[in-house]
Amino acid sequence: MADSTSILRAEHLSKVFTSAAGTIEVLKDINLEVSQGESLSIRGESGSGKSTLLNVVSGLETMDAGTLAWKRKSVAKGKVGGRPIEPIRAGFIGFVFQSYYLIPELNAFENILMAARLKGKVTSQIEGRARELLDRVGLAGREKQGTTQMSGGERQRIALARALVNSPELVLADEPTGNLDENTGEVVMGLLLDLCKQEHTSLVLVTHNPEFASQTESEYFLHSGVLEKRR
C-alpha cells in the first residue's frame, strides 16, 4: 500500500486550449493525489488529455484553474513555494517518454548522467549510481555505446535509468511501451514497476494497455477531460 504522505496533490484542476477553431477544455475539474511510493495508472483514449495531465502536474504546462502542490508546496506560475520550478523538478520528477528522447550525441552513460548534470554537478557518487542503474536495467558494460546503435527496448531502458538517476520522488511515464513490441514492452514495464518499487518511488503511468495498468496499485480512466478512479 502507498504511504499516507502526499507528494502530489491536484485539486479542481482544469486546462483549456484556445485556437482559431475555438476553445477546448482538455482537463475538467481534475482531482488527483499521489502518495509516496504509490503507483497508479491512467488510461484513456487518444486525445483524452492524458499527456496534458502529466504536463500540467509536472509544471511543464500551466493550468487555467485549480491548485497543484508538490510535497505540500504550492506550484504555480513557474514557481514551487516561491522558488524557480526547474531545479526543483530536476530532483523531484523523473520522466519516461514513449519516444525515449535520448540525446543522440551522447553515449548511453552520458545520457543517464545528463539528468544529474541538469540537477547540479556530477559526483563520483552519482556516477556510481548511474553505473548501478545501468547494471539493474541489464545494460552493464554498454556505457560507451551510442544510443543510436541500440534497439528500442535498450533505449527505453537507458531512459528508465536516466529517470531514476537523481532518485526522484515521482516518475511520470507517458506510454513508455508505446513504441515497443509486446515482449519487449513487458520486459520494460516489468523493469519500470520493479525499479520504482525497489526505490520506493511513486509512479504515474499513462498507458493504453489494461494489463500493464492492472499491475499498478490504483487505476484511473480519463475520458473527455474527466478523471475517474476505477480501482
Binding site: V122, S124, Q125, G128, R131, P168, H200
Partner: peptide, 27 residues
C-alpha cells in the same frame, strides 16, 4: 531527494581521472 540509496561507491571514471575528465565532470 530521498536518502542514500547507493549501495556501492565509485570513483570518477573508475579511478582513471584525467584533468580533462574533471573539467568535463564539473562543466
Amino acid at each position: 531527494m530521498k536518502g542514500n540509496k547507493t549501495p556501492r561507491s565509485y570513483s570518477i571514471l573508475n579511478g582513471h581521472v584525467l584533468p580533462a575528465d574533471i573539467i568535463i565532470f564539473l562543466m
